[in-house]
Amino acid sequence: MTTERGIGRVVGDEVELLDTPFGDLGALIGATGSLDVLDDCAVLERCSLDSLQLLAPLGRPGALWGVGLNYRSKAAHAGREAPAEPLIYLAAPSAVLSPGGEVAVPADATEQLDYEAEIAVVIGRRLHRAQPADVWDAVAGLTAANDMTARDVMRRTATPVLAKSFPGCNPLGSSLCSPDEFTDPDAIQVRSWVNGELRQDDTSAGMIFDIPDLVSRISWFAALEPGDVVLTGTPAGTGQDLGRFLAPGDRIQIEVGPVLPLVTTVGTPTG
Rank of each mutant, 00 (worst) to 15 (best):
T183A: 15
E81R: 13
L49T: 08
E4M: 06
A247P: 01
D108A: 15
V190S: 01
L90E: 08
L35Q: 12
W65F: 15
L97Y: 06
S73G: 09
L162V: 04
Q112S: 14
A138K: 12
K74G: 07
R199P: 10
G196Q: 07
L44E: 15
W220T: 13
A63M: 13
E116T: 01
T20C: 12
G239D: 02
E85C: 00
T3N: 06
T268L: 14
L262I: 08
R72I: 13
V37C: 07
D114T: 07
E116M: 07
V229S: 03
A75T: 01
E81K: 12
V194E: 01
L64N: 10
M148R: 01
S34F: 02
K164Q: 05
D186G: 10
I218Y: 05
R156V: 01
L17T: 02
R129I: 01
T159E: 15
E111N: 11
G101K: 02
G12C: 08
A133P: 00
T110Y: 11
Q240I: 13
A222P: 00
G267C: 04
G271S: 10
R126L: 11
L97H: 11
P61W: 10
A91Q: 14
A150N: 06
L142S: 00
L58P: 09
L25C: 13
L260P: 00
L87F: 04
P86I: 13
R191D: 05
W65P: 01
V11M: 02
S73P: 07
A158S: 11
G33E: 02
R199D: 05
T183L: 12
G227S: 10
V215A: 04
H128E: 14
L18M: 12
D114W: 14
G101P: 00
A150R: 03
G196S: 09
R151K: 15
C169N: 09
L214D: 02
Q131M: 10
S73L: 12
G66C: 07
V161M: 15
G257C: 04
I254Y: 13
G33I: 08
E4C: 06
F209P: 05
E16Y: 01
P248T: 06
G12W: 08
A222V: 15
T32L: 10
P212K: 00
W65T: 03
C47H: 02
S98T: 07
G23C: 01
D24Y: 00
S174A: 15
G257L: 06
L49H: 07
S192L: 06
G8D: 02
A91K: 15
L64E: 13
W193T: 08
E197M: 12
S174V: 04
S94I: 03
G23N: 07
A104V: 04
D241P: 02
L231D: 06
C41F: 03
M154L: 15
T32W: 04
D13C: 00
S98K: 12
L28I: 00
R46D: 03
L162R: 06
K164N: 05
T234I: 03
N195Y: 04
E14K: 13
G239Q: 04
G23I: 06
D228G: 02
T268P: 05
A150K: 04
I29A: 08
A223C: 09
R191K: 14
D108M: 14
C169H: 07
A117C: 11
